[in-house]
Design a protein around this nucleic acid. Structure first.
Lengths: 333, 333
DNA sequence: CTGTTAGCGCCTTCAC
DNA sequence: GTGAAGGCGCTAACAG
């Protein structure tokens, strides 16, 4: 058993043409006579030749791979985005280098670096916090970057999102219409601009529009985990809150179970809206009312946008805002 | 703004040494005087030089990236494995090319091919069905491959798993001890050897060990989705089944909700065990009793095993079987 | 339409 | 300890 050694040179020799010609048929260059093309193709098949993408990358300066930075694949929100990204990437003949960052700035910076050293053609970044360092890295990188389901208040990079503020505003108003006035805002980290600058704002403006005074005590900041939500339920009960908007599904799931396990009936005595409509929302009992984000599409559109940028096509809109809807299931009246 | 052009040659010139020397300090080769080393390092820093991994890969025939084939990142079982894989990969300075296959043989073959053309140093394969074609591809590839949480009855490739048969046997026996005799085996596709050759076998042997006659009618084959489970509940009710073992968590979640929504109380009138203990198991109400697979570890160990193989280290055991436990929560008595 | 010739950026003997 | 030189496998002008 020898190692795979057959190179473009071998197939050139075997088929009695030059490597240039082989390269041409490989790359679908039209300037090849049909006959020669077929001859070469046959040899390629006979020799079981497989072009070396690394050599190709070095010569052409294109690797047909894009980097994807994700906080955690295990998170249903991000993995849904990732799936959309990969599908579109595959469609455009790209592969994906996936790297978990845990939203940790150091890891992000480090990963970004190794991605760049691997000469990826582009990068899709997902992350909840984008700080100045990262923005600077992005700028310096001279590599196409698109944010997917991730917000940069500075709009320093192209991105694909929904209107988070508007969505939360909408949810909150429905809660108000249902007669609630003590509505909690159950949030993941406020270091995240989505939460602090967008969702919270939507929450506040819904309150104001309806003459309800904003009460800082009803804003609960957590790390956004299921456990956080579960524990938070106790506090929510003590604070006599009658409804809540949660910024992500696992947190909401925790709150829901926390309330139910403590004897509160949802939605009769407590209403709850969540924000991502991951699979989880439908699996909970009662099922969670939610903003329905087009998660897969956000990833898909982000990847599509990236291909355009890598391809230097004209871009009409670098800051895509996809539509969302609200589905009322059983956690609201 | 120029493109990044600084190469090893530039830093060689700037620091007044040859590229060979720069290459040496880059690769931690000891045969470099401390003084020169520092000088070079400084220039590297000044020039903001970043070695080109592609060129490096071509020259050294090592890309420090491994391919990961996964049915669907969106699936909690596999994404947990993927997380373990990535963490260990990162620890050993590898990156991961992640590709979704949907368990589709064509996609798997195609992805495998492009992975090989990209000269990955190794591959972690996750998938529920491994057929002869795939085995042949593996064999022909001459590339280290490890299966993670995926079973190959032929043991043609190194793998990391738990003892699925034993685990299901255990669950089933507990159900029997609780007084059940009409126990369903709710399964994903029987084309999958884990289900057909392992889990089902465990189920059957538990029955036999306890003098219960195996009833084929109580084996329900589905595609393993949440919806499948939900629908299946009706049939389960009609068949007067009093307990079930499900082969994966989403399926179990569907069954659970399907039963509950149809007015059956769990675990009083129906007991349920599931098999993967993903996050979901704890989020359901009642919480799902389950086999607790060390998902993250399976991925991590698989990746570690792969590094050893890539590194041509001595391997004591190519077919790792990790321990599992059973946690009884509220879906069983 | 096809062949020739340079590299792409780095590693790796082999001398010195 | 350090430099020179030859590839790695392929693409990309440039000729013809």
């Amino acid at each position: 058993m020898e190692k795979q050694n057959v190179t473009i040179y071998d197939v050139a020799r075997e088929s009695g043409v030059s490597m240039a010609t082989v390269s041409r048929v490989l790359n679908g260059n039209s300037n090849v006579r049909q006959a020669t093309k077929e001859k070469v193709l046959k040899v390629i098949d006979d020799l079981d030749y497989r072009p070396n993408a690394v050599a190709r990358g070095l010569a052409s300066k294109k690797t047909t791979t894009v980097g994807v930075i994700i906080p955690d694949v295990t998170d249903g929100y991000f993995s849904s985005l990732a799936r959309g990204i990969d599908d579109i990437a595959t469609m455009y003949k790209y592969n994906i280098i996936l790297a978990n960052s845990d939203d940790n700035p150091d890891k992000e910076a480090s990963v970004l670096n190794t991605l760049l050293s691997k000469q990826v053609d582009g990068i899709i970044f997902m992350g909840n916090e984008i700080n100045d360092d990262l923005r600077a890295d992005f700028k310096r990188s001279d590599c196409p970057i698109v944010l997917a389901g991730s917000v940069d208040i500075n709009n320093s990079v192209p991105s694909v999102n929904i209107d988070y503020a508007d969505a939360v505003k909408n949810e909150t108003e429905r809660l108000i219409k249902n007669g609630n006035s003590r509505i909690a805002f159950a949030s993941g980290s406020m270091k995240q601009d989505v939460n602090k600058k967008y969702r919270l704002k939507g929450y506040v403006s819904a309150l104001e529009n309806n003459g309800i005074k904003f009460n800082e005590k009803l804003v609960f900041e957590t790390k956004g985990t299921y456990e956080d939500g579960y524990d938070l339920a106790e506090q929510i009960i003590n604070d006599k809150v009658t409804a809540a908007v949660a910024t992500n599904d696992e947190l909401a799931a925790g709150i829901l179970n926390g309330m139910t396990d403590r004897g509160v009936s949802v939605p009769q005595d407590f209403e709850l809206f969540t924000s991502n409509n991951t699979k989880l929302a439908k699996m909970m009992r009662p099922q969670l009312s939610s903003i329905t984000q087009p998660l897969y599409d956000i990833g898909a559109v982000a990847m599509r946008l990236l291909t355009k940028i890598m391809n230097k096509e004209e871009i009409d809109n670098r800051y895509v805002v996809l539509g969302y809807e609200i589905v009322e299931r059983d956690s609201t009246k």
